[in-house]
Every structure is written in C-alpha cells, then in structure tokens.
C-alpha cells in the first residue's frame, strides 16, 4: 500500500511566499499563450495554441507522443522561439533573455538529465549557484524533500530511473518556484512515488499557491490531481475542460445480463429503451433515463419474470475518453 506522505515541512520559510506575491496575482493568468505556433519546415509542431492558467491551478497538458507538448513547454521556457504568437508568464512576454522570470519558475523538460560524474549533491549545488541562491542549506532541504538523502553522494550515472527523475524534480523545486512547468514528471517513478509526487503537487498548489503546468500522455494519472485539463493533438489544443466537467463528459452506459437476453432485449425495446450488444455479449443501454434510474429497468425485468444476473452502470475510462476525443479531431 502506498505510504501517505505529508509535507508539513513545506512551510512558509521553505516556500518564501512573501516574495512579491500580492492579492492581485490570485486571479491573474500566471501562464498565458496567445496563438502560440511553431513550424519546423512543413511540420506544424504547435498550431495556434491559446491557453490560460490561473494562479494555484494544476493544468494537465495532455497529448500523445509527438502531439506538441514538449515544443509548447520549450516555448513557455524561452528555449524555442515561436514561429507565431507569444507566451507570457506573470504577464511578461517570454524570451530567451527573460532571466528575472526564471527566478520564479522551476522546470523539468523531457527526461531528466544530470551530469553523470557528479553526485546528487553536486548536480543540485550547480543549480543552486546558477540560480544565485545564497542559502546553502537549500540543497540539503530539497534532497530531504525528494527522499534522496541516502543517494546524496551517489553519482548521477548510478541512479535508478526513478531516482534520476527525483533529482530532476529536485532541481525544479530547489528555489521554491511560483510556477512549475513539468514535462512527464511521473516517468520512471514507481506507484508509491507517483502517489507521493501527486500529493506534493497538490500540496504546493493548494497550500502554497504554486501554479503547476504538467504534461503527460496518461489522462488517468493527470485527472487525479489536475484542476484543469487541456488536450493537444497534432499541435492543436482540441479540448479544455475543468476536472469536474470531465466527469460529465465521460460516456456512461447501463450493462445488463440475464439468462434470456433475447427476451430481455425485446422487453426493454417495448418499453422504449435503446439496446446494444456489447463486445463481451452483454446488453448495453445508453439513455439518460436508464443510467439515472437503473432500478426502473430492474423492476420491469423482475415483473416480467426475467430477473437480471447483472445490472451495472459503467463509466467510460479516461483513456477511452482521451482517445475518443483525439479520434474525433483527426485532421
């Protein structure tokens, strides 16, 4: 069972919230893109992506491999110049020279890479110096936070994939950023690690006002903690929804099985229900009435002497929804 981890040590002194954050920022679009586009020759890697992320939101940026997630993230970080459109962080236009912006931004792009011959401490100390952080203890603190203490003096080349990922996250979190931009941060983590990181992000967003932009190709994972989700496909942002909207958009159906399926099917058709046969041989009813009131169908079947052996409301899984959304938007 995954261990539940609390982050009591993520206190005010660790996150330094007095650093220029005012009430006006609370409703501010901390991350914003306007028609952000990037073309590589004839390939439209990102096309007119406009999105807004408010303070303390966890924005799940979802897409298949090659959908344009990493290119968008690199444009948000000033690593790639947009062909058209712009990206803004805290209302300031992002460019390669936006050095003051990066004091407030932590990031992890693609697979985490570290200097193989340096230890965990060495890799983080380099980032601390380059981030001009005077607090020497911050490296030890973040090592503790990411549960890397026992690997502190291990060279990065000897770390497991999961610990390399933790080191990448430690670099992103070292300076207590106000924005976290993370590209597939759960890669390589074991299930307990994923739960731990998910709780960490939740804590940072809800208790410390950190805005998190997180890309993934796994909707099931993202939907567990994202407050808003954007789906990108073939470079285009094809759907944006709040976490609570997602619940409503998932397809639901009532699955029925009985000893005499043909008779059940006829009976329900006679009562005005629309019946389909599922791949595994069960009957499926998709109407709202059936899903909201399965007891009506149970009553009809029992009174007709056709008691159901299975009566269950099934919800479309998130992966199916994701794939259905993408398929509906194939160019």
């Amino acid at each position: 069972m995954a261990k539940v981890i609390t982050y009591g040590l993520y206190n005010q002194s660790f996150w330094c919230f007095n650093r220029g954050v005012n009430k006006l920022e609370i409703m501010e679009d901390v991350i914003r893109t306007e028609n952000l586009s990037k073309y590589f020759d004839n390939v439209h890697a990102v096309e007119s992506v406009s999105l807004k992320v408010r303070k303390s939101e966890i924005y799940g940026f979802l897409g298949l491999n090659g959908a344009g997630k990493t290119t968008t993230i690199r444009m948000l970080l000033g690593m790639i110049r947009p062909t058209a459109g712009s990206a803004f962080l805290f209302g300031e236009k992002v460019s390669a020279g936006s050095c003051s912006l990066w004091e407030r931004v932590g990031y992890l792009v693609e697979t985490p890479s570290s200097y193989p011959e340096l230890t965990v401490w060495g890799n983080l100390e380099i980032i601390r110096r380059l981030r001009r952080m005077p607090d020497k203890k911050s490296v030890e603190v973040v090592i503790g936070k990411l549960r890397l203490t026992s690997y502190r003096d291990i060279k990065a080349k000897n770390l497991s994939l999961g610990n390399a990922q933790r080191l990448g996250l430690a670099k992103a979190l070292l300076h207590h950023p106000d924005i976290l931009i993370l590209d597939e941060p759960a890669n390589g983590l074991d299930p307990a690690g994923i739960v731990e990181i998910r709780e960490l992000f939740g804590d940072l967003a809800s208790n410390h006002g950190v805005t998190i932009f997180i890309s993934s190709h796994i909707l099931g994972e993202i939907s567990k903690f994202a407050t808003r989700i954007g789906i990108i496909h073939e470079g285009r942002l094809i759907r944006e929804l709040n976490a609570d909207q997602l619940e409503r958009l998932l397809d639901k159906r009532l699955v029925i099985n009985a000893r005499n399926k043909e008779a059940v099917k006829l009976m329900l058709i006679n009562h005005g229900y629309s019946i389909n046969l599922s791949k595994n041989g069960n009957l499926e009813v998709t109407g709202k009435e059936a899903i909201n009131h399965p007891e009506h169908i149970a009553s009809i079947l029992v009174h007709a002497g056709l008691p159901p052996t299975l009566l269950k409301v099934e919800e479309e899984d998130l992966e199916s929804y994701f794939l259905r959304t993408i398929e509906g938007n194939v160019k």
Binding site: W102, E103, E110, S113, L130, R131
Partner: peptide, 12 residues
C-alpha cells in the same frame, strides 16, 4: 548528456 536544457532558463 542532454544537460543543456538545465542551463537555458536560469537567472544566470
């Protein structure tokens, strides 16, 4: 070593 990305969005 693909470490260049860690040097591109820093206060330095």
């Amino acid at each position: 070593d693909r470490t260049v990305k860690d040097l591109l969005a820093l206060p330095t």
